[in-house]
């Protein structure tokens, strides 16, 4: 929480530091609402979403080149998150689809959207509610691994599952 507050203050300060337009603090703060019950972990009891032994701590789904098909090896992971959403009606997720750097930025944005949608559709089939899920795309704009080779590209063809408040 402190960290997020710090980031907020820094972005507020930097927003004042230049005449160039910066996004408003409101825009930055939006979506930063923390569900503290889900994050605080006193002692040894992990929240299920953070427990390294729980499949729910796994948050990424990977794809083949130019494909948005959800591979069978990720079904269990996606279904587990869907069931968590089903059982926790207040929980919400943002699904961010990503692509590798090759090709048109806008076309990749649409391809990343299809990847995020593939996860969303599986979640809806597995008990999550429409209002709990927003699927969006970051296209090729936010690579997890920089580099111009297959190893980097493989890591970047991905959908990330992000819970609200994280």
């Amino acid at each position: 929480m402190k960290k997020i507050l710090g980031v907020l203050i820094i972005s507020l300060l930097s927003a004042c530091a230049s005449q160039t337009t910066k996004p408003s603090a409101e825009a930055v703060a939006n979506d930063e609402v923390i569900d503290s019950s889900a994050v605080e972990s006193d002692g040894v009891d992990f929240h299920p979403l953070q427990d390294p032994n729980s499949i729910l701590s796994q948050r990424s789904v990977y794809y083949d080149f130019d494909s948005y098909a959800l591979k069978s090896e990720y079904r269990e992971l996606v279904v587990a998150h869907a069931q968590y959403l089903r059982d926790n009606a207040n929980a919400k997720v943002l699904l961010q689809g990503n692509t590798d750097e090759r090709g048109s930025r806008e076309y990749n944005l649409a391809l990343g959207q299809r990847r995020a949608d593939s996860v969303k559709n599986m979640m809806l089939l597995s008990g999550a509610r429409e209002r709990q899920i927003e699927s969006v795309s970051l296209g090729e704009e936010k690579p997890r691994v920089s580099g111009h080779n297959e190893a980097a590209w493989r890591e970047n063809r991905r959908t990330d599952i992000i819970y609200q408040g994280e």
């Binding site: 979506d31 943002l94 944005l109 936010k142």
Partner: peptide, 8 residues
């Protein structure tokens, strides 16, 4: 298009 709010 800006990604300043976690999405385009």
């Amino acid at each position: 298009v800006s990604f300043e709010n976690k999405k385009p």
